[in-house]
Write a protein that binds this DNA or RNA. Structure first.
Lengths: 254, 254
DNA sequence: TATTGACCTTTACGTTACGTAAAGGTGTAG
DNA sequence: CTACACCTTTACGTAACGTAAAGGTCAATA
């Protein structure tokens, strides 16, 4: 049950250099040093290395791993449950990639059409997975899985032109919104134009628009600091302002 | 259908720096440079980027990717089929990791036993996956799926002590073999000792030893350059010598 | 027309997680 | 007593970008 660097390395499938490096940065210290200065690892270290490798597999950098595993509140059990969750997500993403390859093969054989954006499905953690990760939970909680799935489906089926149009609209919204904020009047013409544009944009993603849901989303822009940050980036206070404008536009207060 | 660095980056989920870097190392050149010196990418570049990202996802380093995609014999179709194959393998490995987490959770709750080596299943590309990849196909062809599966199963169920013993035996084989090679006599005492040790080692993996299979494996050590390289590393000619010794030991020529 | 501000450019140094080589001590088998 | 496979530390190298600096481009706005 005692291992030297190379033996533990062979066991875990990492190099001895890696283990020395992990010792150096304080992420995995050997149980003891023998009389000749050799690093000797025991049972506890084996388990710790396993944890480290799980995190590494998930792309966590060693600095973060260090903070996690050296934390006094570190709980191996909950960490494992988290690993499990993340690995399942990763498999989902892998499945998307596989679907992508199959689709691309069909496209190459001329059997189907394929838009540029579709060619990167599964790669784009930030647009699909990351987006889902960041906002997905809350959005799913507030609007239900069905709405979100439908929205994603709709986006997948958008043509390049439609997609470009949503991008253009999103830009126009922030532009008009920034200008409207400077008028200071959420009931004014510019503010109402921004709200209308926002509705148009939204209708690309929702196939059943309702003023209630629109007003609810506007409120979320304020409640959720990540949305707030997005809109406030160009103009501080823009998120709140947009909410007010939409509440007036829809005639609904949340 | 024309993209600047940032637009293509957003489309594919990579940074603009990445695209400039890919230009720099000659892996993905823009379709043209406009009058202001901007990089402009077109349809062909989109497809090529997709191919690059597939390779990247599979852990191929950019140098290799460059050689692959710039090769005049590069065929996108067969590349895609290869991607598909590799991605399926990756998913298999991911499933092993997930199984590992589940097992570890059960172990933590005291519901099952778990050996140290089991804790790294799914990580060890080189021992299980890599091994299977390198030798698996040929071995499965020559000995059948059943033998290989049984062998893997047997290895999985080995105790730590048994596992250590196989390691020790493997070392002893190469040692004795190297010495035997220097005698030059495959029928000599040392050579026959090496063959006997090799049988012992083999019996840890096969549960029904037969001289025929043993002789066949010995022949494969010579036929397959990767096995040859392993045995010849310590002593040139060791693989051939071992085959001869085993053929004498078993009394069977292949 | 001048000024933002978000784009783009090149140059260049920084970073992560090790690989690899050098120079030297250790331990055991022949 | 010599080989040889281990171990050690020190230190420089590397891949694939990230990031910052210094500056040109372009469309919209004051």
């Amino acid at each position: 049950m005692e291992y030297t660097v190379q033996k533990l390395g062979r066991l875990a499938g990492v190099s001895s250099r890696t283990l020395r490096y992990y010792d150096e940065i304080g992420i995995l210290k050997p149980a003891r040093i023998n009389s000749s200065g050799y690093r000797i690892y025991g049972k506890k270290e084996v388990d710790r290395l396993q944890q480290i490798l799980f995190y590494r597999e998930l792309g966590v950098d060693l600095n973060c791993i260090k903070e996690i595993v050296t934390s006094p509140t570190f709980d191996a059990g909950s960490a494992l449950r988290e690993h499990h969750q993340k690995l399942l997500e990763k498999r989902k993403q892998l499945d998307m990639l596989i679907a992508n390859v199959e689709k691309t093969m069909a496209w190459q054989e001329g059997r189907i059409e394929m838009k540029d954006q579709e060619k990167f499905e599964g790669f784009k953690r930030q647009l699909v997975e990351e987006n889902e990760k960041k906002y997905g939970k809350e959005v799913r909680e507030k609007y239900g899985d069905e709405t979100v799935d439908r929205s994603n489906r709709k986006m997948m089926n958008m043509s390049q032109e439609e997609y470009d149009e949503t991008m253009r609209l999103a830009e126009e919204i922030t532009d008009v919104l920034a200008e409207a904020v400077r008028t200071g009047d959420p009931a004014g013409e510019l503010a109402q134009k921004a709200a209308a544009l926002h509705k148009q944009w939204l209708m690309f993603y929702w196939d059943d628009y309702s003023p209630e849901a629109h007003a609810g989303l506007a409120q979320m822009y304020v409640d959720d600091e990540r949305f707030t940050a997005y809109y406030d980036k160009k103009q501080p206070g823009a998120a709140k302002f947009l909410r007010d404008a939409i509440h007036i536009y829809t005639g609904i207060q949340k």
